[in-house]
Design a protein around this nucleic acid. Sequence first.
DNA 1: ATGAAAGCGCTAACAG
DNA 2: CTGTTAGCGCTTTCAT
Lengths: 344, 344
Amino acid sequence: MADVAERAGVSTSTVSRTLRGLTTVSPEVRARVEQAARELNFAVSRQAASLVTGKTGTVAVLVPTLNAWFMGSALSSLAPVLRTAGMELTVYVIPDLAERAAFFDRLPARRNADALLVFSFDLTEEETDRLDTLGMPVIYVSQHVDGRPSVYVDDVAGALHGTRHLFNLGHRRIAFIKTVGASGFSFSSNERLVGYQQALAEAGIPRDDDLVAALPVGDERATTEALGRLLSLREPPTAIFAEQDEVAIAVIRALRRTHIDIPTQMSVLGFDDQPVADWFDLSTIAQSPSDLGREAGRLALQLIDGSEADHKRHIVLPTHLIPRATTAPFDRGERAADGELPHA
Amino acid sequence: MADVAERAGVSTSTVSRTLRGLTTVSPEVRARVEQAARELNFAVSRQAASLVTGKTGTVAVLVPTLNAWFMGSALSSLAPVLRTAGMELTVYVIPDLAERAAFFDRLPARRNADALLVFSFDLTEEETDRLDTLGMPVIYVSQHVDGRPSVYVDDVAGALHGTRHLFNLGHRRIAFIKTVGASGFSFSSNERLVGYQQALAEAGIPRDDDLVAALPVGDERATTEALGRLLSLREPPTAIFAEQDEVAIAVIRALRRTHIDIPTQMSVLGFDDQPVADWFDLSTIAQSPSDLGREAGRLALQLIDGSEADHKRHIVLPTHLIPRATTAPFDRGERAADGELPHA
DNA sequence: ATGAAAGCGCTAACAG
DNA sequence: CTGTTAGCGCTTTCAT
């Protein structure tokens, strides 16, 4: 900066003022300084600036992985929001429990960011308490945490609507497949189960835990076994609501292998509306991680600016049922041949 | 840090030395300092440290999007490499030309990172020259740039092997679908086309530009049209090599709609081996973005450490043919009925 | 509207 | 092994 000052024939203070866009610089001087800065390829060091301002000019995000549709979409829409505000984005990827412990032990984000966005982690009370000591706004994304700013999708309502859709199609035996993950993502899964149960309750269908299966995502074998359990029940389900599109697709593939036709013999409903849902013509509950990322970014910027009013704000985003080809009316007539009464 | 020093009854220098893990601290003092630091929830400010060391402790990556299998996988494996080395990761997302221009104009990474990884961008000479002025190692990932460190997949060989596979199955009319993107990704696409052409050349098949189509990714309509063009040729292809799995899947869906059977009437080959390739039982050329990310991270760390030897290193990663259900031998017998001679 | 000077929190010699 | 001292590059009073 000293170089620029010299070249422009002014003091470093003036250079600083110019480069920060303060209005207290005469147009003539401003031009000279900008010229000099350009010629010298000068860029202000955030490090040095933040040392005195106390602001780092960066927002940190804590994510379990980047290798997932949800995270990719959310961050892709978060990034431009931050960039527009002149903020940088630093990413902490916490794939397993060891890394997680290390992060919460050291809290490396401390003093190195102006705000932290925590994505999709199912945090313990202890962990949220620890984040409270960070000395910066912490926004919880894709989960709600009481008393802290959160941005999330209304998973309960989504699952409720999905289950209603199946009910409205005539299904009475509706299975739900939830996922269990080593690290994190389980929050939404639980909420969705709640929505499913609410829908059954309002329809007056008694709860049957045999119809609820839990699976690790991406475990083909476990999917097949869970499906086997459902298909060997005394009264097997006529519809399966999978709590994630990826699981729904695994189910579809397994059913196809057994030549159980979808949707005439089994309806399948997913949750997410990833691009692949369309490719498989999968009926699903759509959520928008892009909107989530965008809103989370905006909220973060607000909190950094210190609008204390929003310190406990919860932003809840909607879901939408996308009916495609894997859900269909349940035709009770089919079973009449087996001795059951139609419409029983 | 002064607080910690006072509480531990030592100087700030000693605190600094302790926290950086230097061995020149007596165990007794070290314990006291660590205790004090823990009690005060103290974390060193990277900002202040970097001001004097000249190292920022962060690696920057420049990516066109985060919303893509390739980027997600690459960054997910890059992140732990950096974290192990105590480095942070900052991400610049450049989705369009305006952002791109802004980035190269201002080069915000300057002085705010120790190295820059440039992913998948098809850069102009001017842009690479500009990056040379950054004053930090710049590693090109998923593309090679002469004279600069690069990490990429051998796209030419991958496409060569894929095309050979189709040739070996008896296909002689092999179409290639490349993608055109507004921003970036086209580099690999071009290389893959080269591999395809090499394979044809070595097989003695004359080049036929009618068999090469170009598409924007994700444009269903364009896919259908391109397919229509191929299917209405005087001698239509018997196999289609799509330069990305996503395009291959779009082709498969379009063919299914027309009831053209895969693979008996048309073989389809993809490139990438995304998870969805397995779901569609798509034969494809596998590449590993995870390996790419990992290697790129390692190289970055080496260059930061100043092993000048590697300043022009190129790391080329292999691809593998994954034969699945969408490629099959071309049965010329089928055409005999149309008057063609078998094995003609 | 501009400049001089005083730090921000830390590390890197240099002494001891 | 530890403390003292002098900045790193910037922003921010406070003068002018």
